[in-house]
Design a protein around this nucleic acid. Structure first.
Length: 595
RNA sequence: GGGGCUGUAGCUCAGCUGGUUAGAGUGCCGGUCUGUCACACCGGAGGUCGCGGGUUCGAGCCCCGUCAGCCCCGCCA
């Protein structure tokens, strides 16, 4: 199916079975080896490389000359015969290495200037600086690694579409020009020309639209939806990204989890990995207690333990300073026992301290047990027997911190991750997928302490906690769930509120007046009142999933044209100042920043 | 918004305690070469040391500012 008027095969597709065929190939000159009388060209396309030999036995002197002078990265069309290479000249590192093409016609159809960054790389050569790779993206994208990434991304997208279609989901598009939603991330705004002073927003997600589709009776919807959030970026966060967005009606949480599991199993299978269903389930509270994070990496142990009891009753293990801290409200002494951790150097432990301090934690206090010897920052308060009772064996290290869970959990999460990084133990499994469920509905605002929504305001409270909505909001759980893979959040979802009265109550908790609610979300409330089926859904972060499945170091390596961490597009130079006449037509006046 | 790292030839990098004419590999250009596959060998060209200012007899190197890229914190309902 790759045959066209101008070519018969892809370069990288030729095999021993093609020997004897006359072929016409189109591709890029990857490398040239000019031996004087004979010239070898590696010709590249998206399928791979094939060696083209241009020698006097079959090619005219003029043809040889053209092969000698063609530049790397030029596009050429070559005609010739596929020939088996003599056994000694086969190249086992090349998929096409058993054959070569003896060129009898040779045309440079796309001459190329010397490339600004190299496409072909020798073994051990470093990549060009990422700034240059992004600036010359058309060249960087020629690299076989990036081509493989984008090819895999395509396969994952198609597989997701196939699985969901087979499960009777309908792919439906939702608007890109939508309404600003003042909660959550910052919106990208688009000025309206015909309505001076009014703006569309690009969607942060199609959340409300997919709920409207449920109300409309479409029952099962999905979309590979583009989403936009104007927030600061990371290696795994781009301002525009793609979600596998899913919503279904007449479902419970278990139904949604089963659907998402089916999709994820298929995606991992597409990438050549077998994963087991059902995934482990973990309550949010358990995850925070045992791993200090809502996205635990379950490939490893090193669970967090509560040592408060020991500090309080026994008086050993820790000194007076810690005991005083334990008097504080909600304070606990928690820590991690690291089997074999006694081998950690002072430098290793300093590094752990830095991690803890970065998140505002205390310590950690540490103690090593080596034979009868006990050493460390709290060695004078601990002895071999007590440590033994705590599960600290010979050769182990215990790391402890004290404080409220909001501080100790992230601190111990950092410690645990750093310990795993440092020890690099063999993982229990290569692919640890799990569900984190029963998230809290509210979390305290870091400044005011008042309840704010932990997720989006359409998430249904847990039916068992409905009565706590007013009396004890922080104890109220949500029907919200995250999918976590090896310590990475793949996506999240929830069962939605379908009762307009509950939805209004929830908005009231957000501090929105009825008037504001009507202005912002009136159309949703109207829809819910028009006969809404119970529904819920999920969104899988597609770029991040692709990144993890191809083993890329950054999301930029699975996106054809990504932005920099400053949200710039270096290739085309976006964003850019608008022309004054364009601004005038949009009724916009630019106010330069002060200072 | 805050912090860290990086910026020297087209590309990847070295450049000592501040010292005289800034180097290497690769790519590029020219030459030799009929079995290479990172071809080999010979020769050559190629520099706004990110940008601006300062200190100094003298700055690639020290100081201040600034720009860009990357990483982290905040942020990402």
């Amino acid at each position: 199916m790759t045959r066209t008027t101008l070519r018969t095969h892809r370069c990288g597709a030729l095999r021993a079975a093609d020997v004897g065929q006359r072929v016409r190939l189109g591709g890029w000159v990857h490398r040239r080896r000019d031996l004087g009388g004979i010239v070898f060209l590696d010709l590249r396309d998206r399928d791979g490389l094939v060696q083209v030999a241009v020698g006097p036995g079959w090619a005219s002197p003029d043809l040889v000359f053209r092969a000698q002078t063609v530049g790397t990265e030029a596009v050429v069309v070559v005609e010739g015969e596929v020939v088996a290479r003599p056994p000694a000249m086969r190249n086992s590192e090349l998929a096409t290495g058993d054959v070569e093409v003896h060129a009898t016609a040779f045309q440079v159809v796309g001459p190329a200037e010397t490339p600004a960054i190299p496409v072909a790389r020798g073994k051990g050569d470093e990549l060009p600086a990422e700034e240059l790779r992004l600036k010359h993206r058309h060249l960087d994208l020629r690299r076989p690694e990036l081509q493989a990434n984008l090819i895999m991304r395509h396969r994952l997208a198609q597989r997701a579409r196939r699985v969901l279609s087979e499960l009777d989901f309908l792919e439906i598009e939702t608007p890109i020009l939508t309404k600003p939603t003042p909660e959550g991330a910052r919106d990208y705004l688009v000025p309206s020309r015909v309505h001076p002073g009014e703006f569309y927003a690009l969607p942060q997600s199609p959340q409300i639209y997919k709920q409207l589709l449920m109300v409309a009776g479409f029952d099962r919807y999905f979309q590979l939806s583009r989403c936009f959030r104007d927030e600061d970026l990371r290696y795994d966060r781009q301002p525009e990204f793609t979600q596998i967005d899913i919503e279904a009606s007449f479902v419970t949480q278990d139904d949604v989890l089963a659907i998402v599991e089916a999709v994820l199993v298929a995606l991992w299978d597409e990438a050549g990995h077998r994963i087991e269903r059902p995934f482990t389930r973990l309550s949010w509270r358990d995850a925070m207690e045992r791993y200090g994070t809502d996205k635990p990496d379950l490939r490893y142990d090193f669970e967090i333990k509560d040592f408060s009891r020991w500090a309080k009753t026994d008086g050993k293990i820790v000194g007076e300073a810690v005991r005083q801290k334990l008097e504080g409200k909600d304070a606990r002494l928690r820590g991690i026992v690291v089997p074999g951790g006694a081998a950690f150097s002072r430098k290793d432990i300093d590094r752990l301290s830095q991690e803890v301090k970065q998140v505002g934690g205390w310590g950690p206090a540490w103690v090593k047990r080596q034979g009868e010897q006990v050493s460390g920052s709290i060695a004078k308060d601990a002895d071999v027997e007590t440590l033994g009772a705590l599960g600290v064996r010979d050769g182990d290290l215990a790391l402890l911190t004290v404080g409220a869970d909001q501080v100790t959990s992230p601190a111990l999460d950092k410690v645990r991750r750093e310990v795993i990084r440092r020890l690099a133990p063999a993982p229990k499994a290569a692919h640890a997928l799990c569900w984190v469920v029963d998230f809290p509905l509210f979390e305290p605002d870091p400044e005011t302490g008042k309840p704010v929504f932990a997720h989006h305001p359409f998430t249904s409270p847990h039916p068992d906690d409905m009565d706590k909505l007013d009396s004890d909001p922080f104890a109220c759980r949500a029907l919200h769930y995250d999918a976590v893979y090896n310590g990475n959040e793949l996506g999240s979802g929830s069962i939605r509120i379908t009762d307009p009265a509950i939805q209004r109550t929830v908005f009231r908790h957000l501090g929105l007046s009825p008037a504001e609610v009507d202005a912002r979300f009136g159309f949703l409330l109207t829809a819910l009142a028009a006969g809404a089926p119970p529904h819920g859904g999920f969104a899988i972060g597609f770029d991040r999933t692709a990144m993890l499945l191809v083993g890329a170091g950054s999301m930029r390596d699975v996106i054809a044209f990504p932005k920099t961490t400053a949200a710039r597009a270096l290739f085309e130079g976006a964003p850019a100042p608008a022309r004054p006449e364009d601004l005038a037509a949009l009724h916009i006046k630019v106010v330069p920043p002060h200072e």
